[in-house]
Simulated assay, not measured.
Amino acid sequence: MGEKMLEFQDINYTYPGGQKPALNGLNSSIPATKKNALLGQNGSGKSTLLFLADGLLKPQQGQIRWARERLNYDRHSLNQWRQKIGLAFQDPEQQLVAGTVAEDIAYGLYTLKLSQAEIKQRLGQTLAEFGLQDLANHPLHHLSLGQKRRVALAGVMARQPELLLLDEPTAYLDSVQTGNLLEELERIHAAGTTLVIATHDLSFAYQWADWIVILHEGQLIMSGEAQDIFSQGNRLAELHLAVPILWEVWQVLVSNLSLPNTMPFPKTIRHLEEQLRDWNKPSQP
């Protein structure tokens, strides 16, 4: 698993007026440097866990720790905590607060009490990294959903967090927009940011993640390397989580074509084609 970046210890949380806990004695952790997918059916506690991780909610019981440092809930501690952790909401409208793209990204930088020169430098860098230069002065309400998601994500990343949390980022996106999001996430991860995505889309998680955490009714059920988790098809079915079609196809091919078990499982159709092409190459004399 590697180094634990964020730890949840005996976490209980029930929403005001709720009849059952959203999280019930949960113990889990987020490994550093990984691309982490948080899976589970609607109501399993995924979003609640992200909100607790960002300090938006306070557990009724348990502790949250960053590198063994306990989260405290006074304003100063929360401000410091949120400089390390960024959260992108499922609905970008909940995050966009200014009139234009540039103003919205700059707003989060002003809260860090940076100098004008540093704000200008970070704003320009962020607009360039997210390909938003041509939209910098556009009103936010003129943007598409995919563009709004990109602006919201840019605003979070302008603060340069070490850990980025995303709640259902692919919801309502078409295949092109999802592909663009994947490219952005790969770039962010390659630059050194640990990522956690809460999703019920197992095909997306299969393609993207290398570490999986599965919640069910507010409790941790499974966690581990993606290949190990998806190998447990029967257990996933019990949790009403369907195994991705590409994984099932790969298992059939391995069984029927006698492919080596050592071959890495393909995460995309292109990757599958490449592996089959390499396997079919005639050996050199």
Score class of each variant (00 low, 15 high):
Ala98Tyr: 06
Ile119Gly: 09
Ser28Asp: 11
Ile105Trp: 06
Gln83Thr: 03
Leu127Gln: 06
Ala209Val: 13
Arg277Asp: 07
Trp66Thr: 05
Ala237Thr: 01
Ala198Arg: 02
Leu185Ile: 11
Pro31Ala: 01
Ala237Cys: 02
Arg187Leu: 10
Ile214Asn: 05
His240Cys: 05
Asp104Thr: 01
Ser144Asn: 12
Gln232Pro: 08
Leu26Val: 00
Leu132Asn: 02
Asp104Arg: 03
Ser255Glu: 03
Trp81Lys: 12
Ala152Thr: 00
Ala32Asn: 09
Gln19Gly: 10
Asn27Gly: 03
Met263Tyr: 15
Glu225Lys: 14
Gly2Val: 00
Ala102Tyr: 06
Ile85Thr: 11
Glu225Leu: 14
Gly55Arg: 04
Val97Phe: 14
Trp208Asp: 00
Val254Tyr: 05
Met263Phe: 15
Asn24Phe: 06
Phe265Ser: 14
Trp208Arg: 01
Pro59Tyr: 07
Val151Arg: 01
Met1Gln: 08
Ala53Gly: 11
Glu217Ile: 00
Gly131Glu: 03
Leu135Asn: 09
Val249Trp: 10
Tyr206Ala: 04
Trp211Met: 02
Ser47Trp: 04
Leu165Gln: 11
Pro264Phe: 10
Ser283Gly: 15
Ile64Ser: 05
Ser115Val: 05
Arg277Lys: 09
Pro266Thr: 01
Gln227Phe: 07
Thr170Asp: 02
Tyr206Lys: 02
Pro161Gly: 02
Leu165Arg: 06
Tyr110Met: 10
Asp201Phe: 11
Leu246Gln: 12
Leu182Phe: 08
Arg235Ser: 14
Asn42Arg: 08
Asp167Arg: 03
Leu257Glu: 01
Leu246Pro: 13
Glu93Pro: 08
Ile105Asp: 07
Thr14Ala: 11
Lys20Ala: 04
Gln219Ala: 03
Ala67Ile: 04
Trp247Lys: 03
Met222Pro: 04
Arg270Val: 09
Gly17Lys: 06
Gly2Trp: 01
Met263His: 05
Ser47Met: 00
His216Cys: 08
Phe265Ala: 15
Gly62Ile: 03
Gly224Ser: 01
Gly40Cys: 04
Leu38Lys: 05
Ser283Val: 15
